[in-house]
């Protein structure tokens, strides 16, 4: 069995407002998949539902195990990690305390975290700094390390390069290329260049549903993305 994450007929939203409707998706082990879509398409809602932060109906199977009934913490322990679009640090905690939390105070995860920190030397220099005082790019770096430290089998990344300077974006994309060789990744991205640098396979979402799927380059050359995303 080569499927890492299988989502079937997922419907989620906020209260009575349904944002994601009857959504299905399959992610193979070791693959990178991008979810494209305009603002309000339901991408973040989908990720939040998958990691247990929003209630939903439907089936989600992770590594052959149904996880739709689990809490967010249990889903993370089952192997699904999440890197949020914003608000991704704990106010009042230092970078070092974030890293301790991320490796779950487990010595076995320390080695993995050390390797990840090689990708982001800026974090090493700021271990005693409060995380909320980091720059936007450094916070994203910290998010990546936090998401990957416990050795998940899949990481959901919400706009991993949003709001950072172009030079930092390049650095993050290079790091994400390395990370994508370590685990399966689902990336929500509005920046097409970033998405293409990380994955050629993608889905386009509109109003909570997938409206196009396949090779992103082909969708781009056929004019489909221009039509759907106004790029």
């Amino acid at each position: 069995m080569n499927v890492c994450l299988e989502v079937k007929n997922l419907t989620a939203g906020y209260g009575r407002t349904i944002i994601v409707r009857d959504f299905s998706l399959s992610v193979d082990k070791g693959s990178a998949l991008c979810l494209l879509g305009l603002n309000g398409a339901g991408k973040t809602t989908l990720l939040k539902a998958l990691c247990g932060l929003l209630p939903y109906t439907g089936s989600v199977v992770l590594n052959g195990k149904e996880i739709s009934h689990l809490t967010g913490a249990e889903i993370n322990h089952a192997g699904l990690a999440y890197s949020p679009q914003e608000n991704g640090v704990f106010a009042g905690l230092t970078v070092d305390e974030h890293l301790r939390l991320a490796r779950r105070f487990d010595a076995n995860n320390r080695q993995r975290q050390e390797e990840l920190l090689e990708l982001f030397p800026a974090l090493r220099e700021r271990l005693s700094q409060h995380a909320q005082t980091l720059s936007g790019g450094q916070r994203k770096m910290l998010n990546f390390v936090m998401a990957l430290s416990s050795g998940p089998s899949i990481v959901l990344m919400d706009e991993p390069t949003e709001g950072v300077a172009p030079v930092v974006r390049e650095q993050l994309v290079e790091a994400l290329k390395v990370i994508s060789k370590m685990v399966s990744i689902v990336i929500v991205e509005q920046n097409l260049d970033t998405a293409l640098a990380l994955s050629t396979q993608g889905h386009v979402m509109e109003r909570g549903r997938i409206v196009a799927s396949g090779d992103v380059n082909q969708m781009l050359s056929s004019g489909l993305l221009e039509k759907l995303l106004a790029v």
């Binding site: 990691c51 247990g52 932060l53 809490t71 967010g72 913490a73 249990e74 993370n76 322990h77 990690a81 999440y82 949020p84 608000n87 991704g88 640090v89 704990f90 106010a91 009042g92 905690l93 305390e97 301790r100 939390l101 991320a102 779950r104 105070f105 936090m146 416990s150």
Partner: peptide, 25 residues
């Protein structure tokens, strides 16, 4: 301590803590 850092994390950002495997409940 480990416990204290977990407590402070949940207080500061319960959703993020949950996605990191810490049960906010």
């Amino acid at each position: 301590t480990t416990l204290g850092v977990r407590w402070r994390a949940v207080v500061a950002n319960p959703e993020l803590a949950e996605t990191m495997g810490i049960s906010r409940n």
